[in-house]
Amino acid sequence: MLELRGVTAGYGHFTALWDVTLRVEAGEAVAVVGPNGSGKTTLMRVISGLVAARTGELVFEGNSLAGRKAHEVVRHGIAHVPEGRRIFPRLSVGDNLRMGAFQPRARQAFAESRARVYDLFPVLRERERQPAGSLSGGEQQMLALGRALMSRPKLILLDEPSMGLAPVLVLRLFELIRRVREEGYTILVVEQNVRQVLKLVDRAYLLEVGRIRMEGRAAALSEQDFVRKAYVGL
């Protein structure tokens, strides 16, 4: 479904990603794990078009994404839930969801998408008229996820969804992500919480200093001594 071949990217004189090759099949859940500053967020931003790749190929369902801007990438069916959630704090929850369906194709199916999001996250229905900034951290993450679903994506990019959440909430959040997945969405997730995320996904990549170091089935990867010591903390 999504394929990156030899992607290099960065900011100014700084290169954050070196020759990254990565693949996500339809219906899969894939994680990219790695320490702080390894280039995980840049990877997400390259896929969603916020950062332009310097070299390499990005192909989504047979279409090249090279040179596409963020607002064009969404139309191909990729939704990016950015690091730190980035909801619109002074817009109501309902308006946040409306904005999620900005592109014309999604706007037509607005009512249906919203009903689905409210079924997944009933709390958002209760808070519909509240300013998004007044929600708790966990609720904000649900809103960010729900907003992404409003664009009727095929692939969802999740950047550090557990960031800033209490451990109890992290468990609940991963449960919700699992349910989103069961709805048939393909997921590419970047996480620091390696232990939890490896339980969620089918496959994972290990990113270090901008390079893919390892790749494998989630279960196999979490058995690797190296990963266990460095990230899982077992």
Binding site: V74, F88, M99
Partner: peptide, 16 residues
């Protein structure tokens, strides 16, 4: 209003 709160997030919603 959304753009004035978070320009980049609004681009991710598909707004040029």
């Amino acid at each position: 209003r959304a753009v004035s709160q978070d320009r980049e997030a609004m681009a991710l919603m598909g707004a040029d």
